[in-house]
Amino acid sequence: MDARIKITVLLVGLGFLLAFMPNPSSKIFKLKPSELLEKSGSKEIYFSVDEVARFVNNEDSTVQLIDLRGADEFRKCNIPGSVNIPFDDLLNPNWSVYFSQKNMRTVFYGNGDQNANIVWTIATGLGAENCYVMEGGLNEWFKTVMLTKFEGERITPRENALFENRYKARDIFTQINSLPDSLKTKFFDAKRLQRAKVGWWVLGRNERMRDWEIVQIENSKIVNWYFDK
């Protein structure tokens, strides 16, 4: 019999099988249900807002903050250094790089507790490691970090450290979020360069202003930052 007919039958047959097989791009949890349940029961998956404030103050490079709110809300304000992955866009393959960082701690937050915990379970179920939730979300952040005041006569060293941490994070939060949008990412680029090297750096063309954005760095500090035609 003609070889081409055999090959045709084979390919059509395999294709027919494929048509009934589950979509290979579908995301199915890798963990066993019992493993996932055990992990989710742990208290260690939570960071308090004070701990996250410390990450922000220290610019901890082993932590990546993931903001799960919509892009509009993110633009209004977000925790400095966070990455916006809107909840409904979570499974977009573009973000997969954030979930495959083995040496990074990934901290999810939304406005409340609900979405961050749902995303934590999905991400962990899909095999992402070192995932955490910021307890209470941004509502808790505002309540505790942004709006508490120390009231009382005498402050203990512990309270002092706690409030210093909060005030510092509060300042950074307010400053960064008061910047125009176009500068926020540039600000972090500049900070990263600041740590890297001394000299003049062209950060790139500013879309809105159509100017080149240039910084001068000396002694790990930005000494000059301006736009040039």
């Binding site: 059509v12 294709g15 099988l17 494929l18 048509a19 589950p22």
Partner: peptide, 15 residues
């Protein structure tokens, strides 16, 4: 459609 269904359609089209 799922990639499998698309593959099947393509194979039939090819034949």
């Amino acid at each position: 459609v799922s990639p499998g269904v698309f593959t099947f359609i393509l194979i039939v089209a090819a034949v």
